[in-house]
Simulated scan of single mutants.
Amino acid sequence: MTNRYYMPTKVFMGDECILENSEVFKALGKKALIVTGAQSAKRNGSEKDVKNALDSVGIQYQVFDKVMSNPTISCVYEGASAARENGADFIIAIGGGSPLDAAKAIALLAAQTIEEGNLFSGNYQDKVLPMAFVPTTAGTGSEVTQYSILTNDKAQTKTSIASDLIFPTIAFLDARYTEYLGVATTINTAIDALSHVVEGMLSVKASLISDALAAAGIQRIMACVPILLQAVRSGRERVFDLQHRQELLQASFMAGIVIAQTGTTAVHAMGYSLTYFQGIDHGRANGLLLGEYLKLVEKVRPDLAAKILNAMNFSQAEQFLELMNKLLGPKEDISRNDLEQYSKMAVQTKNIANCVVKPSEDDIRTMFIQAFRQ
C-alpha cells in the first residue's frame, strides 16, 4: 500500500501565541466570522485574545456563538448564512471539537452552494474560506485534521465531511485556555486523544511517520495518567498545572496529525451510537470501548497489540482496560437490545474497512456487551 503524508496547517504554540502572531490574520482576509459556543471561549479568555489580535491589525469581525455540543447540520448552514450576510472572507474557530468541526463546514458552505443531500458526498468545488483555529480543549485535534463531524439525524449517527479542502490554514495552541476545564472534560478529552493515536496505529493507512507520532503521543498522555487519576480521586481540576495542560494539548495536536493521515477505526464507529442515542460524551464513549478492541487485536495480531501496549508500558490489554475503568468510573446501563442495534449500525460504517483487525458484527456485539457488563 502506498502511504501519504499531508499537513498544510501552520501551527503556532505557546503562551500568548495569538497576540504575538496577530499579523498572520492579515493574510487570511479583511473580515472574520468568529465561530464558537455560547460561553466557554468568553470564560477562558480565548475570545478576548482573538478580538484584541484582530483589533490590533485592523480586521473587522462578527461572532457566531450558536454552536452546540455535537453540532447539527442546520447549525452549520445557519453559520454559513451568517458568514455570507456579514461579508466574512475568513473563519476563526474557538473552542472544543464542536465549534472547530462546525467551523470547517461553515467555511465550506459559505464559499459554495451544497445541498444538504450532498453535504457528505465529498464532491465539492475547490472553494473554501481560509480558517484560523484556536482549540480550548485537549482532545479532538480538529485544528489539524480534514474532518468535520456533524450530527446527522437522518442517519441517526454522527457523519463526517472529509476533504483536504477543510484543513485549517492556521492553528494557535495556547494551553492557558484549557486551565479551567473540569475534571470530567479533561479526562474525556485526554482519552479521545489517546483513542486517536491508538486507532491510528490500528489503521490500514498507518505509516512509519504516523506510528512515530502516535507512539510519542501515547507516551505523553500516559505520563499524565498519575495526575488524571489524582483528579478522579479528588474531584478537583486544580491538581492540573499548566505543564500538564501543555502536555495534553500537545498530545492532542499530535493525535490530530495521526488521524489526518490514517483515519479512525471500529472504536469511533461504535462510539458514535453511544453519543447519538445515549448522550455519552465522545471521548468517554471511545474510552469505554477501546480496551475491548485492544483485547480483540491482542488475540488476532498480538504483535500489533504489543507495539501499542509497549508505548503505554503495559504488557497486556487487560491492564489498559483496568486503567480505563479507573478513569471512567461507573458505566451506563444500556439494554442488550440497544447494543444489538448499535452493532448492526457500526459494522456497516467505512471505519471497519479501515481496521487492520476487522471485527465482525459478532465481534462488535461482544465488545459492546463486555464494555457495559455490570
Rank of each mutant, 00 (worst) to 15 (best):
K205F: 03
G235M: 14
G256C: 03
M201P: 05
L248C: 09
T178N: 15
M222P: 04
Q246I: 08
T178Y: 12
V239M: 06
Q250D: 05
T186D: 09
I257G: 00
I218H: 03
Q230C: 01
I187F: 07
V258G: 06
L242E: 05
G182Q: 13
D174F: 02
M254D: 13
H244T: 14
R176H: 15
R220M: 14
A269V: 02
A190K: 05
T189K: 07
M201K: 10
S207C: 14
A231R: 01
A269S: 09
V239W: 01
V232I: 15
A260Q: 01
T189R: 07
A260V: 02
E247A: 06
L213M: 12
E199N: 09
A260T: 03
A266D: 03
K205E: 03
Y180D: 08
V197I: 11
R245G: 00
G200Y: 05
A231T: 03
F172A: 08
R236Y: 04
V204I: 13
L213W: 03
V197R: 02
V232Q: 02
V197N: 04
C224I: 00
Y177P: 09
D211E: 15
R220A: 00
A175M: 10
V267L: 00
R176A: 07
G263D: 01
A266Y: 03
D192N: 13
D174H: 06
R220W: 01
Q246L: 12
I257R: 01
A206H: 08
S234V: 10
S207P: 11
A260L: 02
I221W: 09
S195H: 12
R238N: 15
F172S: 07
V258T: 12
M254H: 07
Y180C: 12
S210H: 11
A175V: 04
D211F: 07
A215I: 14
R220L: 09
T264A: 11
A251Q: 12
S252C: 10
I209D: 04
H268L: 08
Q250E: 09
A269W: 00
T264N: 08
Q243K: 09
I187P: 04
Q261H: 10
I218F: 05
I187T: 13
I221E: 10
D211I: 06
V225C: 14
L249I: 00
D241Y: 15
C224P: 02
S195F: 10
R236E: 03
T262F: 02
L213V: 07
I209S: 04
G200W: 06
L229A: 02
E247N: 10
Q246G: 02
V183D: 12
E199A: 07
G235K: 11
L208V: 05
F172P: 03
A231E: 01
V204W: 04
A269Q: 03
A216M: 11
I209R: 07
A175T: 06
S252M: 13
L202I: 10
I227F: 00
E247Q: 14
A255N: 06
N188I: 11
I191M: 06
T262I: 07
V197S: 04
R238L: 05
A184Q: 15
L208S: 11
L248I: 06
G182D: 13
A260E: 00
V232P: 04
F172K: 07
E247T: 09
V239T: 13
V258N: 08
H196S: 11
K205P: 09
G200F: 04
V258S: 05
I187H: 02
V197M: 10
A214W: 04
Q219Y: 08
S210G: 11
T185S: 10
G256F: 00
A215C: 10
T264R: 11
I191V: 15
V267S: 00
